[in-house]
Design a protein around this nucleic acid. Structure first.
Lengths: 346, 346
DNA sequence: TTGAAAGCGCTAACAG
DNA sequence: CTGTTAGCGCTTTCAA
């Protein structure tokens, strides 16, 4: 019960112990102005001896900078988020910022008048992933001129918020093209992601464009809801199989869904890639460990997170940054489309 | 109408607009003392109108509580960390705390005198994962009486830091037992995790205990370094195969390593589970999607993270919490050990 | 119940 | 180069 706080040293203690003023201590701490080498040494020593650690809140309050960026996301799961987090964190730390993460889905106090809105008071800026914040909220942040960078989502027309996205459309088009032209597939299933997810939208556009250009009629029956989730994808495919829908390839929307697809096919006794080609999107760590190894599109997940952090820090520190960053994607060929065979020693 | 559109509103603006003192505003904000219903209403309205958000730094500085907990971890990767993060975040938010995460590996300023030590000034307490902080650092935090909870690591003897771990030893023993007794395996490979990782240590102890009790001699040649990493595990197994080491089962250390093992075996043309049984540990999301589906031990990853957050918050708020929390583990039988067969429709 | 006022620990002018 | 001093925006006594 008794948590007696022996008071931690403050900048005043350091100053006294070093025989200088607190400003001088502050200066050596922040290298914000030249300080005599001798005193610098004394201050350093005092800091060491007292085991002094400046208190963030005081610095923040005085300097009006939190040196922290926030990341808003829906639900943390899968290799995808691990990669993204790694990238964002690296970008933040490199820029000298800490990272505060917040899953919108866990907010236990949605309607409290005191609800903490991550960005506006705890951080210098916010990375908003996909649809984890709705339009009105974004607009409000904009009006406050609060630095925001969108990740895997483009800015609402009027708002002009910097965004970092990947070449979903071209990536998708390219890989579907590959299925059509190289593997002679024509009945290609597409499993879309969550409704609101922009990545999913553009991947579908790319898919349809590829079909169009090859003169293949778009067939709504071949589109299912994979939701970027392996279970949902498995279910969606099971349903198609049950309905007797015929297909010779599957573009699963993302790698996670592809994993579910491969499973459904395996359980149905359908061979990949002999009977059906399967491709994903993302090239998450998952992809090359699936069976068969998954042909997919490298969506530079980590790089996207990293870039978003960098952009946000630019925005915070310089007041401006690139309005759009579109990361290129690249096809990664493995076995599941039909391109390679695993070498198995007999 | 407002005349100051430049600065964000402060508690003073709210007070003026509501015709009360800032203390009163603070009171309705924090429900820290009874306030007249009328004034409460006025204050609420003013807050709404001004779109007021209290500033965290000021609250923290004044109240000496950050309402933030920190999570220190090495490298974010894989399903494992996604699960852990989900748990920790849920626990934090439920308790009304924010979560600050910090990967030790990304710290770009390791030797700066101004290096920010996450816990000591930005947070009310710290969850330290595995070996992401060394003994001396832990000791220092202890001396400062800074609240710390260890996750997947037990406390150094003298320090008595609360810890949350899982039943690694029994879990491992049980699953190796299963291999021995149910599947008649006797030459069982163990792939250990990273050197410093305590989970790995106890899993090995469990493994050896199981061998012992069945009168099987421990064979050092059957132990390799999987490092809880699928690539390393694959390499380790490849090396064993190359050396002509014989085995009939593999306890891969964790699911990630098991994934690499399965791959190595597949490429070597060795059938699982017919020729060799394979089991993992963790029951991460990965496990049931491997081919064949992986028999493993449910290590309650998310629950462990959640519990750690809860314990830490208890420690912060009540000054004490359970010194040890040992989460039970449970075997999850799937196909890779030899127990089940996938139903494949012909 | 309410308000006035004293900090919380630090940064950043502003003098010297 | 260095010290003095005025805040940063809030919580929290202490009186009233």
């Amino acid at each position: 019960m008794m948590t007696k706080n022996k008071k931690r040293p403050t900048i005043i203690d350091v100053a006294e112990s070093a025989g200088v003023s607190i400003s001088t201590v502050s200066r050596v701490l922040n290298a914000s102005a030249p300080v005599d080498a001798d005193k610098t040494q004394k201050v350093r020593q005092a800091i060491e001896e007292l085991n002094y650690q400046p208190k963030a809140a005081a610095r923040i309050l005085a300097s009006q900078r939190t040196e922290t960026i926030g990341l808003l996301l829906p639900l943390i799961s899968g290799e995808y988020f691990a990669g993204m987090l790694r990238g964002v964190e690296r970008g933040a730390i490199e820029g000298g910022y800490d990272l505060l993460i917040h899953s919108t889905y866990t907010d236990a106090r949605p309607n409290s008048p005191y609800r903490r809105v991550l960005g506006e008071h705890n951080t210098d800026g916010l990375i908003v992933f996909s649809d984890s914040l709705d339009g009105t909220e974004l607009q409000r942040l904009c009006e406050l001129e609060f630095p925001v960078v969108l990740l895997h989502r483009s800015s609402p027309d009027v708002l002009n918020i910097p965004s970092v996205t990947v070449e979903n459309k071209n990536g998708a088009k390219q890989i579907v093209d590959h299925l059509i032209k190289l593997h002679n597939r024509r009945k290609i299933v597409y499993l879309r992601g969550p409704e609101e997810h922009e990545d999913s939208h553009w991947r579908e556009v790319g898919y349809r464009q590829a079909l169009d250009e090859s003169g293949i009629l778009f067939d709504p029956a071949l589109v299912g809801a994979g939701n970027f989730d392996n279970r949902d994808a498995q279910d969606a495919l099971d349903a198609m199989l049950l309905d007797g829908i015929e297909f010779d390839a599957i573009f699963a929307g993302d790698d996670e869904a592809a994993s579910g697809v491969l499973r459904a096919l395996r359980l149905a006794g359908i061979r990949v890639p002999e009977d059906v080609s399967v491709v994903g999107f993302d090239d998450s760590n998952l992809a090359e460990h699936l069976v068969p190894a998954l042909t997919t599109v490298d969506a530079q997940i980590e790089q996207a997170g990293y870039t978003a952090a960098k952009r946000l820090i630019q925005l915070i520190e310089r007041g401006e940054t690139n309005l759009m960053t579109l990361l290129p994607t690249q096809m990664v060929l493995r076995r599941s489309c039909g391109c390679f065979y695993e070498e198995v020693k007999p």
